[in-house]
Simulated scan of single mutants.
Amino acid sequence: MGIQRINPNNLKYVSLLTLTVQNSAVSLCMRYAKTRDGDIFFSSTAVFLAEVVKLITCIGLVFMEEGTFLRLKASVHNAIIKNKVDTMKMTVPSLIYVLQNNLLYVSAANLDAATYQVTYQLKILTTAVFAVIMLRKKLIPTQWGSLLILVLGVALVQLSQGGETRIINVAQNRFLGFSAALGACCLSGFAGIYFEKMLKTSDLSVWMRNIQLSLLSLPLSLLMTMINDYTAISNQGFFFGYDLFVWFLVLLQACGGLIVAVVVKYADNILKGFATSLAIVLSCIVSIYLFSFLLTLQFAFGTILVIISVFLYGYDPNKNNKSTKKSSNHADEESLLDSEPQNV
């Protein structure tokens, strides 16, 4: 009730600020956490804990919708236990999101925050490709053009960087980082469209779908933890390298996509593109001062192309077409729900 009394124009500015801070903070925090001096935490454990926090958050949101614990219990039972087939269909995006989040940590450890932020915009391309294939979505000419500009911009950014570098005590391989980011983009695109298709074919709420995702992601992410870091965790402990900053990063990852999903309903595509662009610029500026990032002319030109592509892809000349706008807003909301620094 309280949020309805707020001036809608003010909500747009709040949305802009929230989207900008969330988009840039995740990449910067992941980069800092993986390259700072001292003990480095295990990425797989952070992915697991983020799913725990996300599950608790979504259960709390559904509880607020239902009003009582008994209604919450009945709602979860009907949606998950009684509807086993539908729940098991969410195993696919659950596994993909676990793999995606682990790849993002690999990318953040091997790419500076600015390059990571720009490169990860390739998820626009992969999401568009899977939307065309899986949902038979038709892209307008400006969107196809924006995708070409996006690829060119990311290519320029990557070519402007060197090969292998070392910061503090962490060896970094840019090819590995780019490969991980590209893999995460492909997984994000497929999982986002799959998730959207599931939402369109049922009447379950977004929060209940996320409860399904988290419940299935927890055992999968725990398995991933055992596969990747079992020996190290056995010797050093599950919470090795954890401090307040790492816990903040876990919370940021878990709640980031959920926060964006809430605020994006008050913002249009142009505003969302503006927030993404500001996040890229902010990441570049902070990287210069925090990580001694060297900004080259080629990197700047590539970044500008990526920003232009973001605006072009979100631009809808048929804005007054209600069906087009509804479809666009629906797709935006679902694609922002993945647990990437989204994913955002």
Rank of each mutant, 00 (worst) to 15 (best):
L182K: 14
S188W: 01
I259T: 10
K197N: 09
D243V: 02
V206R: 01
L249G: 04
L223S: 15
K197F: 03
K197V: 01
L249T: 13
F248M: 13
F190P: 05
L213F: 14
L176M: 13
L215Q: 11
M198H: 06
F240T: 00
M226L: 12
C185V: 04
S202R: 11
L216T: 04
M198C: 08
M208L: 13
S221Y: 05
S202L: 07
G256K: 10
L215M: 14
M224S: 15
G237I: 00
A254P: 00
I227V: 14
A254C: 04
L220K: 13
D203W: 05
L216P: 06
D229G: 06
E196S: 12
Y194I: 02
R209C: 03
G257K: 12
D203R: 12
F239L: 14
G192A: 07
K197Y: 03
P219H: 09
V260K: 15
F248N: 15
P219T: 08
A181C: 15
T231H: 11
L176V: 10
D203T: 11
P219M: 11
L220H: 07
V246W: 01
Y242F: 15
L176E: 10
T201Q: 13
N235F: 03
I193S: 08
G257L: 11
I227P: 00
S221E: 09
M226P: 00
S217D: 07
G256N: 13
L252P: 01
L199E: 06
L176F: 06
M198K: 14
F178D: 07
L216F: 02
W207M: 10
G241E: 01
W247I: 10
P219R: 11
L182N: 08
A180W: 02
L182D: 05
A232C: 06
I227H: 06
S179L: 14
L249D: 08
F195Y: 10
K200Q: 03
I259A: 14
N210D: 10
S221M: 06
L213H: 08
C185F: 01
I193N: 09
W247K: 02
G237M: 07
L220V: 15
G241R: 00
K200T: 06
K197R: 13
S179I: 09
L187P: 07
L222P: 00
A181H: 14
V206G: 02
F245S: 11
N228Y: 04
I193D: 06
M224C: 13
I211P: 01
S202Y: 08
D243K: 02
L223P: 09
A181N: 12
C255H: 11
L182E: 03
A261R: 09
F248W: 11
W247R: 00
T225F: 04
V206C: 03
L215E: 06
A261W: 09
F240C: 09
L222C: 08
I259Y: 10
F190I: 03
Q236M: 09
N228W: 04
